[in-house]
């Protein structure tokens, strides 16, 4: 069961200060919301580097192998025999290797982003406010019931325009 406090902020620096204090006091898991990506929030949260690149690498390597394989296998299975010419040859087949690498690599990157970001999220979620997509910043702190009052006090002290408990 998720339980915590959500604070709606109008200013970016207030949001950063609230997050820094919540993190400093180790008051549960903190999630920041912003209408656009902000490095200030990323620095306050200190997240690990996104591992999306691993999905990209695996997808791209699989794609390039499949592209070459498709062309080589197809040529050998249905050979077009021309005197003095190889049935399979890597130079023109690089087109297939490259195009399929891009296709599979890019699609696996998007899959990785979806997987890591936890989307699609089709169920109702807590700790969100529609203002976070428009002009406001948000802090959702998921914490133990006995810490809720302290979290609320921190959010209010740093200038949250609205603070509410959610579960």
């Amino acid at each position: 069961m998720h339980r915590g406090m959500v604070g709606v902020f109008a200013e970016l620096d207030s949001t950063v200060e609230a997050i820094e204090e919540l993190k400093h006091r180790k008051l549960g898991d903190v999630t920041a919301y912003s209408p656009t990506p902000r490095h200030e929030l990323e620095h306050a949260i200190h997240p690990p580097m996104s591992p999306v690149r691993k999905f990209t690498l695996v997808g791209a390597l699989s794609g390039v192998c499949f592209g070459y394989w498709l062309a080589i296998w197809g040529s050998n299975y249905w050979p077009l025999v021309v005197g003095g010419k190889a049935i399979s040859t890597w130079i023109p087949y690089t087109v297939f290797g490259f195009e399929v690498m891009v296709m599979v690599g890019a699609l696996s990157t998007v899959f990785g982003m979806f997987y890591l970001a936890g989307i699609p999220r089709l169920t109702k979620t807590v700790g969100y406010d529609p203002r976070f997509s428009s002009g406001h910043y948000g802090v959702w702190c998921e914490c133990a019931p006995e810490q809720l009052a302290e979290v609320e006090s921190i959010l209010r002290r740093h200038g949250a325009v609205e603070v509410r408990g959610e579960r």
């Binding site: 999630t31 919301y33 990323e42 996104s50 998007v110 982003m113 970001a117 936890g118 699609p120 948000g138």
Partner: peptide, 23 residues
């Protein structure tokens, strides 16, 4: 897709967008 503008979503989004641009 239930996008919520969280820092986690933006972080993976920005990285994926960069790789898509690179491809």
């Amino acid at each position: 897709f239930g996008w919520r503008n969280s820092e986690r979503e933006w972080r993976h989004f920005a990285r994926a967008y960069l790789f898509l641009a690179a491809f």
